[in-house]
Every structure is written in C-alpha cells, then in structure tokens.
Computed example of a mutant assay.
Amino acid sequence: MSSGVLDRSGQPKSMKRAQRWTGEVEDLYRFQQAGYRDELEYRQIKQTEIDRWPDTGFVKKLQRRDNTFYYYNRKRECDDREVHKVKVYAY
C-alpha cells in the first residue's frame, strides 16, 4: 500500500468488487478472511509487521481480531469462484 494522503479517519472513499485475480486481490482476500478491510486497516489496528512469503510476497500469517492466527500457503488461495467476493477499497 502506498502512503498517500488519507483523510484523518482512514476510511475508504469507495469500494468495488474484484473482477479478476491479481496479487493485490490475493492479499485483500487474505486480509478480509481475517476480518480486516485491507492492509491499511490491519496496520492501524494491530500495529505490527506483516509476515510475507519471501518468494511470492503474499501474506503468510495474520492475527485475527480475537487474537487467533490465520496461516496461509505461499501459493494462491483465492479461487476464481471467490474473486468476486473480494472488496477493493479506494482512499
């Protein structure tokens, strides 16, 4: 995520659904599975570094809001039939 200019609340201006799989959609899928909007919201709430797979760059592990963890594979986990469920936010 870029550190562009955000409003003070950090709330998104708009949302659209993903149309096709990309690396960004894969990461959003993982954050949303763990109960967060995206990487920005995760960093605001957890204030911790994000573990990523060194070869693919995908998220490796996320802490859910109930403090349990989700562990992800290094390969794609968001199937084509799940792509349309991923929300892509614009700030």
Rank of each mutant, 00 (worst) to 15 (best):
residue 23 G to E: 06
residue 16 K to Y: 03
residue 55 D to N: 11
residue 51 D to P: 14
residue 64 R to K: 14
residue 62 L to E: 01
residue 73 N to W: 13
residue 13 K to F: 13
residue 80 D to Q: 10
residue 54 P to M: 04
residue 77 E to D: 13
residue 44 Q to A: 10
residue 2 S to P: 14
residue 41 E to P: 12
residue 27 D to E: 09
residue 8 R to I: 00
residue 22 T to M: 04
residue 52 R to N: 00
residue 67 N to S: 15
residue 45 I to D: 15
residue 28 L to D: 00
residue 17 R to N: 11
residue 54 P to W: 08
residue 89 Y to W: 15
residue 7 D to Y: 14
residue 34 A to N: 02
residue 39 E to F: 07
residue 20 R to H: 06
residue 40 L to M: 02
residue 55 D to F: 07
residue 43 R to A: 02
residue 8 R to M: 06
residue 90 A to E: 15
residue 13 K to E: 08
residue 75 K to S: 13
residue 31 F to R: 00
residue 46 K to H: 01
residue 9 S to F: 14
residue 31 F to N: 05
residue 32 Q to A: 00
residue 5 V to H: 09
residue 40 L to F: 15
residue 13 K to Y: 14
residue 63 Q to A: 05
residue 77 E to A: 06
residue 8 R to P: 09
residue 44 Q to G: 08
residue 18 A to M: 07
residue 34 A to I: 03
residue 10 G to Y: 12
residue 83 V to A: 10
residue 15 M to N: 01
residue 61 K to A: 08
residue 37 R to A: 02
residue 21 W to M: 03
residue 25 V to Y: 09
residue 49 E to W: 14
residue 21 W to H: 12
residue 86 V to Q: 03
residue 76 R to A: 12
residue 12 P to N: 06
residue 71 Y to C: 13
residue 90 A to P: 11
residue 48 T to G: 10
residue 17 R to G: 02
residue 82 E to Q: 15
residue 5 V to A: 13
residue 34 A to V: 00
residue 42 Y to D: 00
residue 77 E to P: 09
